[in-house]
């Protein structure tokens, strides 16, 4: 017995496919590039961290899009794994940032140069 919700879930790939694949690729590329630029240019550790998350999610988006277009669930499974791992990573990363702040009273990564030379 097919419910209304089931039918909606099955139609999601089709909804996704209403937008051409090129658009997804361009969007993810743009998001990824923004992330890279954020990491390169910003000095605030939190913002850098957010930029990294942005890159991760740009990749996630692309994985989901390809998954729908090629009717292969593997891509979506990857997305779930990445989100789970990213959550753990965020917890550790934020903890590190907190510790950096406690030690040097700033989270400016430009000042973290004790390994110079």
């Amino acid at each position: 017995m097919e419910t209304k919700t089931d039918r909606f879930m099955q139609s999601i790939p089709e909804i996704i496919r209403t937008i051409p694949l090129t658009h997804y690729i361009l969007l993810s590329s743009a998001l990824f590039a923004i992330g890279v630029l954020g990491v390169l240019t910003r000095r605030n550790a939190l913002i850098v961290f957010m930029a990294i998350e942005l890159m991760l999610n740009a990749v996630n988006l692309l994985l989901a899009a390809f998954s729908s277009y090629f009717s292969d669930p593997a891509g979506q499974i990857f997305v779930f794994f990445i989100m789970a791992v990213a959550a753990a990573e965020v917890a550790v990363g934020l903890a590190i940032i907190v510790m950096i702040y406690r030690n040097i009273q700033t989270i400016d990564i430009g000042l973290l140069n004790k390994l110079r030379n």
Partner: peptide, 8 residues
């Protein structure tokens, strides 16, 4: 000299 310590 490459080992500047600058993370960026």
């Amino acid at each position: 000299k490459l080992q500047s310590g600058n993370i960026g």
